[in-house]
Design a protein around this nucleic acid. Structure first.
Length: 255
DNA sequence: ATGGTGGGATCCCCA
């Protein structure tokens, strides 16, 4: 089965691209981030027309997450239960054998800013939430825009980004702490392209120059990672006209 | 040069 995570940067602007991915790639599950619309404005009918179920948690203008799946999601959860937050950044559900957790981690804007502190607090709460999820469900798939570059090899100019937002030591430490719970960074263990960038800034033609970063991730619980066959960045979607600044990222699991 | 592009808001914020 194929599973995709994708920061669409406005689900309404990207609706045609989304429908093309559903039609052409036919993933079992897609997690979307940055819907940038209220829940009622999510294109539920268009998604259903392709034979999918959809759950969404949006808000006006910013953030927003959704899960789209062939199997109906059960036990849906929105928001971190252990963190007071008015931003829609998490949606989780049981889909078949898997607990699927889809997140849009705060960007942080700049190291030591208020938004950076919010990001670190959010990540600390998320860490504790993942620990509980692993104990409760066992088969856990975490996906989303983590807004963290795990290692220097995951950014086009590590010397330029040294210590900067997305690359700072505290953010990388938070990422490693999540892995230490018992998760595998799926794109790292099964890299099929070099580099495995997932995001390219719209500015300065960075996609054309392949000046990107790997900030969208799949974290698989160890038992799930044993089923991993392949991972892939769908660069052709990023290359379309009027694209999201993120490419969809796909993993393939043995059924 | 202290910008740049794009989305969604509204006369600017966020990424």
């Amino acid at each position: 089965m194929k599973i995709i995570t994708w920061n669409v940067n406005s689900v309404n602007v990207r609706q045609a691209h989304l429908e093309e991915v559903l039609k052409d790639v036919k993933p079992a599950i897609i997690g979307l981030q940055e819907l940038k619309c209220e829940t009622a404005m999510f294109p539920f009918d268009a998604v259903k027309a392709h034979g999918y179920h959809a759950i969404a948690s949006g808000q006006k203008a910013y953030n927003g997450v959704a899960l789209i799946s062939q199997i109906e999601p059960q036990d849906v959860e929105i928001q971190l239960p252990n963190f007071e937050d008015d931003q829609q950044r998490l949606i989780a559900a049981t889909i078949g054998d898997y607990r699927v957790i889809n997140v849009y981690v705060p960007n942080g804007q700049e190291v030591d800013s208020e938004k950076y502190e919010y990001k670190l607090k959010w990540l600390a709460a998320f860490h504790d939430y993942l620990k509980d999820a692993l104990e409760q469900y066992g088969n856990v798939i975490v996906m989303g825009d983590f807004n963290i570059v795990p290692k220097d090899e995951d950014v086009y100019a590590p010397e330029l980004w040294q210590g900067k937002i997305l690359c700072s030591g505290k953010e990388r430490e938070a990422f490693n702490n999540m892995l230490s719970l018992g998760f595998v960074d799926a794109l790292r263990v099964f890299a099929t392209q070099d580099p495995m960038f997932t995001w390219w800034d719209y500015r300065q033609g960075q996609f054309e120059k392949d000046e990107g970063m790997r900030i969208d991730h799949f974290l698989l619980s160890k038992n799930v990672s044993a089923r991993l066959m392949k991972s892939e960045v769908l660069r052709d979607v990023r290359a379309k006209e009027r694209p999201s600044d993120h490419a969809p990222v796909a993993i393939y699991l043995k059924d």
